[in-house]
C-alpha cells in the first residue's frame, strides 16, 4: 500500500508546489513509484513547475466525474519514468473535488504507487481539507515569518481533527519543512530562526531550504529545483527526501556562509 503525503501550509506562496515537485522528483529518482496530485482546482500550477503543461489532456476532476480514467489522466514525467503527475482542472470549481471521488482516486493510486503526494491549495477551505483528508503523513511548509508560522499552527490543528486518520483515532505523521530560509537575515535578527519555528510548532524538522535564486529559475524552466544539484536549495531538498525515507542527516544551510577576507571588507 502506498503512502499518502499531503504538502500543505495554510498560507499561500510559501512553496507548497515547489516542494511537492521536488520531493516527488527526489523520491522517484531513488526508484520509488510516485504520483503527485494537484489539488488546487482552478489555479493549476504543478504542471508548470513539473514542466508538463503542454501535455495535459485530462485532469483530476475529469477522473472524479468519470469522464476519463486515471490511466488517461496521469502524465508520465519525461525525465524519470516512474513519476506521474495528475494535474488539477483549471476551469472547474473546487467543489468538484467530492470526497467519495477523491477517495476512489486515492484508493486506486495507493494500489499502484509507493508514494502519493497531494499538493494542497492555500487556505483552509474545501480544497485544502480534501487534500489532507486521506493523508498518512503531512509535510507542513512554513516560511520563517510570523504569519506563516501561525497559519501552519492552524493547519496542524486541522490535521489533528478534520482528517480521516484523526477521526479514526489515529495520528498523522507531521514534518516541518522550513523554506525560503536566509541565515544571514536570521543572524541579523530580521527573520525567525529554525529554533524559533521548531519551538512554536513543536513537530520534527524534515528540512530547511535556503532562499535561493535557483528556485525561481527552476520554476520558470519547469525543472524541479532538486534536479539542480549545484544549488544549495536542490541539495537541501535532496536531504529532505532522504529524511522522508528514514535517513538521519545533519541539517545544512542554516548558518551564514563563511565569507572570504575581501567579501568581509567590501561587503558580500
Amino acid at each position: 500500500m502506498g503512502k499518502i503525503i499531503v504538502v500543505t501550509s495554510g498560507k499561500g506562496g510559501v512553496g507548497k508546489t515547489t516542494s511537492s515537485a521536488s520531493l516527488a522528483m527526489g523520491l522517484a529518482r531513488r526508484g520509488m513509484q510516485v504520483a503527485v496530485l494537484d489539488f488546487d482546482v482552478g489555479l493549476r500550477n504543478l504542471d508548470l513547475i513539473m514542466g508538463c503543461e503542454r501535455r495535459v489532456v485530462y485532469d483530476f476532476v475529469n477522473v472524479i466525474q468519470g469522464e476519463a480514467t486515471l490511466h488517461q489522466a496521469l502524465i508520465r514525467d519525461k525525465r524519470v519514468e516512474n513519476l506521474f503527475i495528475l494535474p488539477a482542472s483549471q476551469t472547474k470549481d473546487k467543489d468538484a473535488l467530492r470526497m467519495d471521488g477523491v477517495e476512489k482516486v486515492l484508493d486506486e493510486l495507493t494500489g499502484r504507487f509507493d508514494f502519493i503526494l497531494c499538493d494542497s491549495p492555500a487556505g483552509i477551505e474545501h480544497g485544502a481539507l480534501m487534500a489532507m483528508h486521506f493523508a498518512d503523513e503531512a509535510v507542513v511548509v512554513t516560511n520563517p515569518e510570523v504569519s506563516s508560522v501561525r497559519d501552519s499552527d492552524r493547519v496542524l490543528g486541522l490535521l489533528q481533527s478534520k482528517t480521516k486518520k484523526a477521526r479514526d483515532g489515529g495520528n498523522i505523521r507531521e514534518h516541518l519543512l522550513l523554506t525560503r530560509y536566509d541565515p544571514e537575515r536570521v543572524s541579523r535578527g530580521e527573520m525567525l530562526s529554525v529554533t524559533d519555528v521548531e519551538e512554536i510548532l513543536a513537530i520534527p524538522l524534515l528540512g530547511v531550504i535556503p532562499e535561493s535564486k535557483s528556485v525561481l529559475a527552476a520554476s520558470n524552466s519547469g525543472e524541479p529545483v532538486i534536479l539542480d544539484d549545484a544549488s544549495d536549495a536542490g541539495q537541501a531538498y535532496d536531504d529532505a527526501v532522504s529524511r522522508l525515507l528514514g535517513e538521519d542527516l545533519p541539517h545544512r544551510f542554516i548558518t551564514p556562509a563563511k565569507k572570504g577576507f575581501f567579501a568581509r571588507i567590501f561587503g558580500g
Binding site: 497559519d151 499552527d153 492552524r154 496542524l156 490543528g157
Partner: peptide, 8 residues
C-alpha cells in the same frame, strides 16, 4: 498532552 493549535 498535545499542543493546542491556532484556532482550537
Amino acid at each position: 498532552e498535545k499542543p493546542v493549535r491556532s484556532g482550537q
